[in-house]
Design a protein around this nucleic acid. Structure first.
Length: 314
RNA sequence: ACUCUACUUUGUAAU
């Protein structure tokens, strides 16, 4: 069973859901590890309904099982279910508390986040960083800085969290100052810088960061694409697509938004058709972009038709 | 037993 689980975990943790499922159902028997791995595979893909279905079918659950489900509810923003599960748990580990904390932080419920944080019997780096992340979604950057300074210990993620707060709200000067104090930087740090420069339309700074990055992931590329889009450099953005190693839904949506916001409504609609024709995944963001494009182009009829088709087609 | 928790990319919040 350990071998089966090892195989299962290889797929489950890599996000290879179909393969994981195949292994899971082919196994001669299961234990907690198998269940938790499979559950975690669903949660990682944000397939909360599938996760819940599996969760309810399990006759035995341990703390890890419940924590996994709890974090699934949290990341999907289902606070009610998260809270209910948390309250019903026979015992709580620090991870349970941290997951509940993250659930509140995720939906921006600061007072509940703080209440949980204060109730916790002990706190670790995760707890503190989650608290910091909750506050970093607000304009109150001074308060975030206070939390950061109050932390008993910090790691790269904590640094990145506050760095992102500066970037996200366009405080470029503080962002740069903070960056220079960072003891180490990761790919995420540079991606955050790209976000900050992009947000303030500092295209040159963004591309200079981008060109100097030793490693780039799809987020870096999308971020840079977004920097073109922010500036309204649509032609360049399209040309940039050719250089991108991998195009995903976020890339297409970025373009969709760029077209919709720069008066190229028809192009946006065309792009959407191309996405559908090619069988690309679309999500609710793509759909909203299309509605915005329609309304800005004055194509109310088309918007209405489209709106109705959403309910049937998607 | 590499089973669970924190950081980065796309939309909306006008009166």
């Amino acid at each position: 069973i350990v071998c089966w689980n090892a195989l299962l975990s290889a797929f489950a943790l890599k996000g290879q859901l179909e393969e994981a499922k195949r292994v899971f159902y082919a196994m001669p028997q299961w234990n907690y590890f198998s269940w938790n791995l499979m559950l975690s595979a669903y949660v990682k893909k944000n397939l909360i309904h599938d996760a819940l279905e599996l969760f309810l079918r399990l006759d035995e659950q341990d703390t890890v099982t419940r924590n996994t489900m709890l974090s699934g509810f949290g990341q999907s923003g289902d606070i009610d279910r998260a809270k209910k599960l948390f309250d019903q748990m026979p015992e709580w580990s620090l991870v349970s508390w941290n997951s509940m904390l993250a659930a509140y932080a995720h939906v921006g419920d600061l007072s509940s986040t703080l209440k949980v944080f204060e109730t916790m019997y002990c706190r670790d780096l995760f707890s503190w960083t989650t608290l910091l992340a909750a506050w970093s979604q607000t304009w109150n950057l001074e308060e975030s800085k206070k939390i950061f300074d109050a932390m008993p210990e910090r790691n790269l993620v904590s640094w990145n969290t506050l760095l992102y707060a500066y970037a996200h709200f366009g405080h470029i000067y503080e962002m740069e100052a903070f960056l220079s104090e960072m003891p180490e930087k990761s790919l995420v740090s540079w991606n955050i810088l790209l976000a900050g420069y992009g947000q303030r339309k500092k295209f040159k700074a963004a591309s200079s960061v981008f060109n100097n990055m030793v490693q780039r992931d799809s987020i870096s590329w999308n971020q840079m694409l977004g920097a073109f889009a922010q500036k309204g450099y649509l032609l360049e953005a399209v040309r940039f697509l050719d250089r991108m190693p991998k195009l995903g839904m976020a890339s297409w949506n970025t373009l969709l938004v760029a077209f919709a916001h720069n008066g190229h409504h028809c192009t946006a609609l065309d792009l959407f058709s191309v996405m559908l024709l090619n069988g690309f995944e679309v999500d609710e963001i793509s759909l909203i972009c299309v509605l915005i494009a329609c309304s800005r182009a004055g194509r109310f009829q088309r918007a209405r038709v489209f709106f109705h088709s959403i309910q049937t087609d998607f």
